[in-house]
Design a protein around this nucleic acid. Structure first.
Lengths: 226, 226
DNA sequence: AATTAAATATGATGGGCATCATGTTTGCGG
DNA sequence: CCGCAAACATGATGCCCATCATATTTAATT
């Protein structure tokens, strides 16, 4: 972990209003007193499958992906977190070693919050706990929906869904075919063919490596099971 | 909901030690004071997608499945809960309508706990909340693992995994090919062929509609990605 | 006990998509 | 600015598995 001495202010933090951790000014003040800032370069690993969680990470700026590596070298992206996202909470609260790797997708600043102090916050601020539980339960929904989609939808439908999701949550971000594939549960080649088709249909436009959505409704109807 | 006047005792309840809700004698006493017992016949629906959650359900005895129905009439089983399991918490804590149906797979007794009182318990007993969060985080892990398995493993591997899981968690339960398929993310025919093969390989034995595992290690190696 | 629906069991067929292969383009580091 | 690795792009191939079909057995219902 690469902690810096300087502590960024929580008051001017972009994530203040969106993070499930910073639910009230009260809690925000305490979090500020216990957090430590860490900085990661693009591609750097934040934690790794098998390690013991000692705290959790809140994304101040940048982008983090959680991914699992299967036996045959294939990687699957479980979650992607931008500003306000919380990384490493699942294993921490499940009280088990990390089951996935957390990787900085670009230069990223995180707030590290040691577990003992964090648990203390939750014990003293039940409304913060319930607020955070809401966020976890939404993640659970996403995961279960992803499994169902994997069966019910065709690969191209999942790709349409993926680029809509990625666009909505991380606008103006560039994605490689591989990254989209690992998120959508398919291969780069299949993503490729789907994107070509979408472009041919006038749904998207590819400016270099950036995807521009021309017909949002059209893409949605491609993604949706009627 | 079919609530009865009679209130079953929490002190003699089988689920007392296994349920994530009944974490301490203290909490157990409060839960007892606010719960209501409900009974459902096999096949009966407990709640339905789209409805507003008003509380949650703890399984006292019986078996409950959570399933989603996709557009084309296909059903997928998200979770199966036996004694001690908690049903309906995800939507309640996410503060959104139910996204799945809860169905009693056999005659089932539940403890219904209204949300207002439940939140009160959690506010006053932070350790109960954190205990419950652990359980949620494990469910999240299961869901994410299920998605990964859906891609990495072949159908027969998932079937092997499924019958091991179902056996471990709900021993001596009878399962139809369809139920196994909806859990394993495949079709009854594919389950069929996998089971036939397993029997041919001497891994299992089918006594009527009950599956007997003869070679546990062998099945495990079928299920596992080396 | 008779009737009917549901579950079991297997075979045949076809399509979706992963895999491999190959050429081109992009973009980064020296 | 150049070279090389990574990403893009598209074609060819094969196979896993969903789907459909059909016969048999089991279980439930009257």
């Amino acid at each position: 972990m690469t902690a810096t001495a300087k502590k960024d202010s929580c008051l001017t933090c972009d994530a203040k209003h969106t993070s499930a951790l910073c639910s009230s000014p009260d809690v925000l003040r305490i979090i500020y007193s216990i957090k430590v800032n860490c900085h990661y370069k693009a591609g750097q690993m934040i934690f790794q499958q098998g390690q013991e969680p000692l705290g959790l990470f809140a994304v101040q700026s940048g982008l983090v992906k959680l991914e699992v590596n299967s036996h045959d070298g294939h990687a699957h992206t479980l979650r992607i977190l931008g500003t306000g996202g919380v990384v490493g909470y699942r294993s921490l609260f499940a009280r088990e070693p990390y089951k996935a790797n957390a990787v900085a997708m670009e230069d990223t600043s995180l707030c590290y919050i040691p577990k003992t102090e964090l648990f203390q916050v939750f014990v003293e601020h039940p409304e913060a706990t319930l607020n955070f539980m809401q966020s976890i339960c939404k993640d659970l929904r996403s995961a279960e929906e992803k499994w169902v989609d994997q069966m019910d939808k065709e690969a191209s439908e999942r790709v349409a869904e993926a680029i809509l999701f990625l666009q909505d949550h991380f606008h103006d971000q560039k994605w490689t075919r591989k990254e989209i594939a690992q998120w959508a549960g398919t291969t780069p080649e299949t993503v490729m063919r789907a994107l070509s088709q979408f472009e041919k249909d006038g749904l998207i436009e590819q400016a270099g490596r950036r995807i521009i959505i021309l017909n949002r409704a059209g893409l949605h109807s491609k993604a949706a099971q009627i």
